[in-house]
Amino acid sequence: MRRYEMMVILDPSLDERTVQPSLDQFLAVVRNDGGSVEKVDVWGRRRLSYDIEKKSEGIYAVVDLTAEPATVKELDRQLNLNEGILRTKVIRPELH
């Protein structure tokens, strides 16, 4: 088990209130594989420094979780398949 921090940029056309439940749906993968989600922090709408997929804004969310490496890889894969997600980044904070 390792600690991870995952940042997700979601499509700005989504409703901010639906972000939390839809993220929870994705994070079910972590819980089913014996991992745990410590914190889901939705930053809300924020201007992007440059356009991503022709969009100048994004909804940011940061998730702290503990899981097996394979689980996180699967989570990342599933997030990237989703149209409503512009970008993801997984980081292991203790490595730095």
């Binding site: 940042m7 940029i9 420094s49 440059y50 994004g58 970008r87 980044k89 980081i91 730095h96």
Partner: peptide, 20 residues
Amino acid sequence: RDVATAIKNAREMALLPYTS
């Protein structure tokens, strides 16, 4: 070195610009 990596990570997530 840490700052440089942090900036590069932030750029990837559009928190900081690559060029302005």
